[in-house]
């Protein structure tokens, strides 16, 4: 395990920001922390990395207690890009390299990776939010860490920047790095993560492989033709063992879930054989938002 969080809790005065969180991040995974704003993602990472002191619980990195040495094996972008506004991008990275004990020969490479090489001598305070975020990503790569912790890494980036960050994360994961990615965007987690933990109001709602947690079946929406009644349609559906979760929809329609061995064409054919003619058949992808709501409600 790269990171183990055991029964971690954090209380700020009367507010419980995190309650009894236990989470294990396996080596080589892209681990997503998913939750709405204020659900405890940043608090979890702050505790894991020692900038916040836990009210209870333990943190272990690489099987050992958190230490300065173990943190140098981890590249971190937590919440906001934190740099000296009066220093240039390059000067800021030089400071980071000193703290991480990373060779300054890596500066050009990481600046190139995030596309800031042309702006490296400009002061950080003149950067746009997207450029600040890129610089923060560059700093996480210094010292070639085995693990990257990225908290909302696409914050402030334009669509091209978002795509670039996703590609970068996937490339780093392919190189064997473990990546811990916090996001409130389901789409982001689903596209790049292998594992996910869902947090809500400081509590863990679900954790496991993305395919187990986030993928749930699409629904097929059926509209009976003028010759077939809704009642007849329902009765016909009840005859099919590979159909489940029949639900009434607006405008006299019905939605169902198919098992993985059958597709909408098979359903259409089966119904026609029972004398039901459909006026409409539509595959509705279950929205990520509705999956998330199902997980957290």
């Amino acid at each position: 395990m790269v990171l183990e969080l055991d029964h971690l809790s954090k209380r700020y005065g009367g507010t419980e920001a995190l309650r009894d969180l236990t989470l294990h991040v396996p080596a080589g995974s892209v681990y997503g922390l998913l939750g709405p704003n204020g659900s405890g993602k940043t608090t979890t990472l702050g505790l894991a990395l020692g900038v916040l002191n836990p009210t209870a619980g333990a943190v272990r990195w690489f099987g050992q207690a958190l230490s300065a040495a173990s943190k140098r094996r981890v590249g971190v972008l937590l919440e906001t890009p934190n740099f000296y506004p009066y220093l240039s991008a390059r000067q800021n990275l030089q400071v980071v390299a000193e703290v991480k004990r990373a060779p300054t020969s890596q500066l050009d490479e990481v600046l190139e990776t995030v596309g800031l090489r042309n702006r490296q001598h400009d002061a950080f305070q003149g950067f746009s939010l997207g450029m600040k975020q890129r610089l923060a990503l560059a700093s996480t790569l210094l010292g070639q860490p085995e693990v990257l912790v990225l908290d909302e890494p696409t914050n402030g980036l334009d669509p091209q920047g978002i795509a670039e960050v996703r590609t970068l994360v996937q490339r780093l994961a392919a190189e064997g790095k473990t990546i811990i990615l916090a996001s409130h965007l389901l789409d982001e987690i689903e596209k790049v993560c292998t594992h996910v933990a869902v947090l809500q109001r400081g509590q863990l709602r679900a954790a496991g492989a993305v395919r187990d947690i986030l993928t749930s079946a699409d629904r097929v929406v059926l509209r009976p033709g003028p010759a077939s009644s809704l009642q007849a349609l329902r009765e016909a559906l009840a005859q099919l063992p590979w159909i489940s979760d029949v639900q009434a929809e607006a405008e006299g329609r019905v939605s169902v879930v198919l098992d993985s061995a059958h597709d909408p064409a098979a359903l259409n054919e089966a119904l026609f054989r029972q004398g039901i003619v459909l006026a409409g058949l539509e595959l509705r992808h279950r929205s990520l938002e509705s999956q998330f709501l199902a997980l957290t409600s």
């Binding site: 990395l49 300065a68 040495a69 943190k71 140098r72 937590l78 906001t80 000296y84 980071v96 703290v99």
Partner: peptide
């Protein structure tokens, strides 16, 4: 105070300084 305001103390701890 700059280090607190710029949150660079926090970042240096994240980067491996004690």
């Amino acid at each position: 105070a700059d280090e607190f305001q710029f949150r660079t103390f926090r970042q240096q701890v994240l980067n491996g300084a004690s």
